[in-house]
Write a protein that binds this DNA or RNA. Structure first.
Lengths: 211, 211, 211, 211
DNA sequence: GATGAATGAGTCTTCATTCAT
DNA sequence: AATGAATGAAGACTCATTCAT
């Protein structure tokens, strides 16, 4: 039965990819050698190369897998009929990311930094990563539209802009947590809360510039 | 006199560092070879190695230099007697970063991504980078205190939290601009403005969780 | 089966080591480059490096191998029930060394000089070489004890001292043969014979000093 | 006055050569770099290169100097009207070498090993070293003739052979002292004394072989 | 003459990938 | 289908020597 064979194939791929991610987090993308991945996977050189054409393919697949996993995690949060208000949603997303990192031992935040860096010089990765983040941003804009529909947010706002602002907060949380640490999802949310309550908060950049 | 003047030495160092940064942006930190840097610098192998002990040293210095330059750029914005309100300040910072990138042809945003990635496995870099970002975050918290002093922000807020939230926005803008593009400082500011005006905005994380 | 047999592995190691020894004798230890050894071995760079960690390892192994081979050669001479008297034994040892050098084309005498030099600054080599020579010296002292047992040598003599004197003669023969030439084992033996028959030979150092 | 200048030149040369010998003893001939020698000499690169054409020249001169110094030391011992008998002479020579090593901090024994090794692949050095050792051997043979003249040694002996045997002992002492240690001049002398008093000592190699 | 900055050929070593078995 | 030995191109770095000042 080819079905079992296929399952086995998938299991092997996952085994290699997980080994690769462990290596990547430990050594970085470039400093990780194929022997590193091969040893960590417990397979033979030839076996690994029968599942992936080359190292670039493994990087690509490992990062893509992470993006897909994250996507699965975020879908229920973003595609719900009654999304939480901005602050709550942000927290939910950031906590999901934190939880994901804890779950499998792959620190998604740190893996993301590796991916962003690699995407600078790897067109294929840049492309798949771009697709992922644009979809994420669009989903956030979609939530913003839902907020407008339910009257939580003014209908004159540009939902795209809101999506971009929210994405910036999420990504910035990821960087900050990975590089400095000492940030919790709630910290961000709370800080934002106060910043936004500034009298004449002037959050509209144009006003700021004019003033 | 074959003894080179300090100015000339510094000029040479800068020459190498700038060449390195150009290479890094083009090829990434690891894919950049020493011959790449050497050729780009216009010097000889030996000359480059007389200014920097090894490749790691060049990476270190190139990123450190960028941090120092950025720091110089941000100081006047962050250490002023009458800082702009939150939205305006954010815009100012992001625009400074954008302007810096345009100035010398070194896209600071993309260089930052490279640095964050490298910092994962390079303790020395992680240390100097951590110092820089913590100082940045503290400066932002300092501005928050100033806002509290002038009554722009409620005195019950934690300025540290505000610093973290603002830093997240700045870093997130950098990532988003580098990876997806199609974000302007004002976009973020505007999106945030609307998100924050959400009725019962629920930006306080705890409320969000409870809800 | 790509899994190589132990015999083949050993054959490869020997192949590399013999190539290395040929190079070392031609160029010296340091002036021999890895490409030299690699080409002489007939293998590829990677293959050589899969058998030996680095150049130092090859030096170490090449010299150690020589010591082991020499040891095998000397064992039957030194560990016999009825050793020849001093002069005969010396000749036997020196001739064994000469014969060994002729056998495989590796001039053991010249290789020894290279090793002694390298041992000055290479602790690991110094250690293994020290072990070898101390064992050799002890074996010579052992023969001296046998001589004392059979009455060939006075029982009041210190066998250790005899071992040291004999070792000096052997090593000195090696140096002289390698550096100046025109010495045969018998020459040494004969010269010693006459020198020792000096009336009031005064070979006891203390007497010499007093005189 | 060119005389002072010449003296200064010689002093400089000595300064460089002494620095070089210190380096050579510490690092070996090849692992010593020109910067090593330059720094140890306290002069500038250019200065050192104005006194010696290249590194090979420094090696050559440093070793030659050592040979000359040793020669000066041995002359009075070897060219005397009433030389000590064999055992005493040997001790005198070995003690002179030991004393020389202690005097200036240049361990002549270890320097000799370095030189022998280098002589394998350096024709010029091999030549000057050969000249030195042949002269030494001839001087020893000369002493043997003197011993024959005064009746200490049988007139039927070949003084050349005696020279070779004595040289072997001296060189062997040097090697043993440098590589293993725990040998004193007297030890050798004493050991030899007992070995030679072997009944039917059979020191004549031919007899040994026949037996 | 003196200086030391600059040169660049030459070394060791790694590692992605292939392919005989 | 699986294995892991073998390949060799490519990279980081050193250091003897030169020569402009």
């Amino acid at each position: 039965m080819p079905i079992i064979s296929n399952e086995k194939r998938d299991a092997r791929r996952t085994q290699i990819l997980n080994a690769a991610r462990r290596c990547f987090l430990r050594e970085g993308l470039h400093a990780t050698t194929m022997p590193d991945v091969i040893q960590a996977s417990g397979l033979s050189t030839g076996a690994v190369y029968s599942y992936f054409k080359n190292k670039e393919d493994i990087i690509q697949a490992a990062l893509k897998t992470s993006m897909v996993e994250l996507s699965d995690l975020l879908q229920p949060i973003l595609h719900t009929d009654s999304p939480l208000p901005p602050g709550g949603l942000l927290c939910q997303i950031m906590e999901a990311i934190v939880r994901f990192s804890a779950r499998d031992g792959f620190d998604l935040k740190r893996l993301a930094l590796l991916g962003w860096s690699e995407a600078q010089r790897n067109a294929r990765l840049r492309s798949s990563m771009g697709t992922f983040y644009i979809a994420f941003r669009n989903d956030l804009a979609g939530v913003a539209k839902e907020w407008q529909r339910t009257g939580i947010i003014d209908s004159s706002a540009d939902p795209e802009d809101i999506g971009k602002a929210l994405l910036a907060l999420v990504l910035g949380f990821v960087v900050q947590a990975a590089i400095i640490g000492e940030v919790e999802p709630e910290t961000i949310s709370r800080g934002l809360h106060w910043a936004c309550r500034a009298s004449e908060s002037g959050l509209k950049g144009s006003e700021a510039k004019d003033g």
